[in-house]
Amino acid sequence: MRRSTPNCAFIAEQRDRILRSLDDVDQEAVIHVLSEFATPERRTRLLSVFNARLDAVTVLMDAPHDPHNGAAVLRSCDAFGVQRLHVVERNERFLSSRTVSRGSERWVDVRTYQRSQDAIEALEASGHELVATHPAGELVPSDLRAIPKMALVLGNERDGIHQELVRACRRSVRIPMRGFAESLNVSVTAAILLHNATEGRPGDLSERERTKLYARALILTVPHAAEVLEAKGIRVEIR
């Protein structure tokens, strides 16, 4: 039975509404108005994080079931600078425990798909090589650094990676182990592999995307941001 955990989808939906509404306004104007309400340290921190964000490395979760695992992977994406998490939902909506994600759902873009093929086509169109996780994979974690653009494919906790996704993966990666355990929890696997895959990579988001993320971050963190912006004639949907 699935854990009874509140769905954080409403946070993602709020974030997506903000991003859509930012398409219709002057993002630089939003930043100009709201930045004075953030401390210099906070502004520096936000810009530093977004400048280091990565498109070259992403994650594809195949039908995650446990909300704690989904949240932990989401948190690892945030920690290692991965901007996008892709999820094939199949029969269950993607749930993320907010007590585990600790706010990371506000900073990582989650894209969901009902079919494996839709996810495969989206990632191939963006130039990402799909790399499966497998105990007998031919790659080791450090090999991931040499792949220009990659999507790490993580399987369902019980059933593993769907065969349609397996066929789309050119290669697979293993985590060498020396104990009796033959595998690790999916969230632990994600953290180890993302640490290796992202190490030494410079941030690669476009200036336009970084600007949009910075504007969104100010909207999400400045108290009464909507009212402040509206007083300056800028209308952004937050609720």
Rank of each mutant, 00 (worst) to 15 (best):
R2H: 09
R3F: 02
T5I: 15
N7M: 06
A9M: 05
I11C: 02
I11V: 15
A12D: 14
R15F: 00
D16I: 02
D24L: 13
E28L: 12
E28R: 13
E28A: 15
A29M: 11
F37G: 00
A38T: 01
T39K: 09
T39W: 02
T39M: 06
E41P: 00
L46P: 01
L46E: 03
N51V: 01
A52N: 12
L54D: 07
A56E: 10
V57T: 05
V57Y: 13
M61K: 01
D62R: 00
A63W: 02
A63Q: 14
G70N: 00
A71L: 03
A72Y: 07
C77M: 06
A79H: 12
A79K: 04
A79M: 06
G81N: 08
G81M: 06
V82L: 14
H86G: 12
V88S: 11
R90M: 09
F94I: 05
S96A: 15
S96G: 01
S97A: 15
T99C: 00
V100Q: 07
S101H: 13
S101T: 08
S104Q: 06
V110P: 05
Y113A: 10
R115Q: 15
S116G: 10
Q117E: 15
D118I: 00
A119I: 02
E121S: 12
A122E: 13
E124Q: 14
A125F: 02
G127W: 07
G127V: 11
L130C: 07
A132F: 08
T133S: 04
P135L: 07
P135V: 12
G137Y: 10
L144E: 07
K149P: 01
M150R: 08
A151V: 01
A151K: 08
A151H: 04
V153T: 09
G155H: 08
N156D: 10
E157T: 08
Q163N: 15
L165N: 12
L165I: 10
A168Q: 11
C169T: 13
C169W: 13
R170Q: 15
I175V: 15
I175G: 09
I175E: 10
G179D: 04
E182N: 14
E182T: 15
L184Y: 15
S187W: 06
H195P: 00
H195D: 08
N196Y: 09
A197W: 07
T198A: 13
G200M: 11
E207V: 12
R208N: 04
E209C: 01
R210Y: 07
K212Y: 02
L213P: 03
R216W: 08
R216A: 12
L218T: 03
I219E: 04
H224F: 09
H224M: 05
V228W: 03
V228D: 02
L229A: 04
K232S: 10
G233H: 11
G233Y: 12
E237W: 11
E237N: 10
E237R: 14
E237I: 13
E237A: 14
